[in-house]
Amino acid sequence: MRIAVFPGQGSQSPGFLSPWLALDGAADRLSQYSEWSGVDLVAAGTEWDADRIRDTQVAQPLIVAASLLSWNALQSRDAIDGVAGHSVGEFAAAAASGILSEEDALRLVGIRGRAMAEAAAAEKTGMSAVIGGEEASVVSRLEELGLTPANYNGGGQLVAAGALDALAQLTAEPPAGTRVIPLQVAGAFHTRYMAPAVETLRSAAGRVSASDPRVTVWTNRDGSSVTAGSDFVTLLVDQVASPVRWDLCMAAFSSAGVSGIVELSPAGTLTGLAKRALRGVPAVAVKAPDDLQAAADLLGSADA
C-alpha cells in the first residue's frame, strides 16, 4: 500500500515555491489558489520573508497550495492508495482524495487561517516541541504547567501549547530526558484557545459539498480511516481545537501494511517522523520538482 502525506504549519520557508513556478501551468494554478484563499500566494511563496509567512493566515493556505501544486505535478499519483494530512495538511488530503474540490479546500483553509489568527490574537500563546522523554511523564509535566499536548507526533516528539509564560517555564525546567524547542507559530493551535475559530469554520463548511473519498483517508482525530466525506469535513472543523494524533495515524499506516510514503511539498517533517516511527518503510520528501522522479520511482517499486 502506497500513501501520500501532506505537511502542516511550520514546514514553509522563504522562497520555497520559486522552483515550482517553473513548471508548466503552475503559475496560473497558484494565481487561482490565491483568488480562492484570499492570499497573494505567488508573492508569499517567492518573495516574503520568514516572519511574514509565519502569520497563520498566510502560512495555512500557502502550505495547502504548495501541497496541491506538487500533488498535481506527481505523474504517478494514480498509484496512491491512501492519504493523510498533518493538521492543516488535512485540507490538501481532502482535495487529493476527492472529498473536497480544490476550490472548496482553498476557500475553507483561507477562512480557517484568518479565524485562527483572530483567535490567537486574543491571548499571548504559543507552542513548543518536546523531544524525547517518557510520554506519560511529559504529559504530566504539561498538566502541571497548565499546558496542552496539542500534537502527538510520534517518533519521540510531542508539541505543547498554551500561555507563553508556562512555555517559558517548560523550557527552563523540562521533563527528564527531554529537549524543548519553541516553535515559530502564532498561537496555541489545537487547544481551547481556538474555540472561536471552530464556530467560524463550521459555518463556512456547512456551505460546501463533500464527496466520499476515492482512496483510504485517515483522520488526525484518532488515526482511524474515514469512509464518508461529510464525516471527514466535520472532523476537519473539530480538529482546529483538538489534538493532532499523528502518532495514531502512523500506527494505522503500519497496521495497513504501508510499503511506501510520499510527502508532498513543503516536505521533510513527516518523512522524518516516519523514518523514526516506521523503520524500514521507504519514504520520499518532495521538496522541489527535482524530487518528483524519486517519488515516481518509489511509487513504481513499492509493493501494492
Results as ranks from 00 to 15, higher is better:
4 A>G: 15
4 A>L: 11
5 V>N: 02
19 P>V: 04
19 P>I: 05
22 A>Y: 03
29 R>T: 15
30 L>S: 03
30 L>Q: 08
32 Q>K: 14
33 Y>D: 14
37 S>M: 09
37 S>N: 12
38 G>Q: 06
39 V>E: 10
41 L>V: 13
41 L>R: 07
44 A>M: 06
50 A>N: 13
53 I>R: 00
62 L>N: 09
70 S>I: 11
71 W>Q: 04
73 A>S: 14
75 Q>C: 08
77 R>C: 12
78 D>C: 04
79 A>N: 13
81 D>W: 00
88 V>W: 03
94 A>L: 00
95 A>E: 02
109 V>L: 10
112 R>K: 12
112 R>N: 10
113 G>L: 07
116 M>G: 10
117 A>N: 11
129 A>H: 14
131 I>G: 10
135 E>Y: 03
135 E>T: 15
137 S>G: 15
141 R>Y: 01
151 N>G: 07
154 G>P: 06
155 G>D: 06
159 V>R: 04
164 L>M: 14
167 L>E: 10
171 T>L: 09
173 E>L: 03
173 E>N: 14
175 P>Y: 03
175 P>R: 00
177 G>S: 12
179 R>K: 15
180 V>H: 05
180 V>A: 10
185 V>H: 03
188 A>R: 07
199 E>R: 13
202 R>L: 06
209 S>F: 11
214 R>C: 02
215 V>P: 13
217 V>N: 02
219 T>P: 08
222 D>L: 02
223 G>R: 06
226 V>D: 14
227 T>N: 09
228 A>C: 05
231 D>G: 03
235 L>N: 09
236 L>F: 02
239 Q>M: 06
240 V>A: 01
241 A>C: 06
246 W>E: 00
257 G>Y: 13
261 I>W: 00
267 A>W: 03
275 K>H: 07
275 K>I: 00
278 L>H: 02
279 R>D: 04
284 V>E: 02
288 A>T: 15
290 D>S: 15
294 A>T: 06
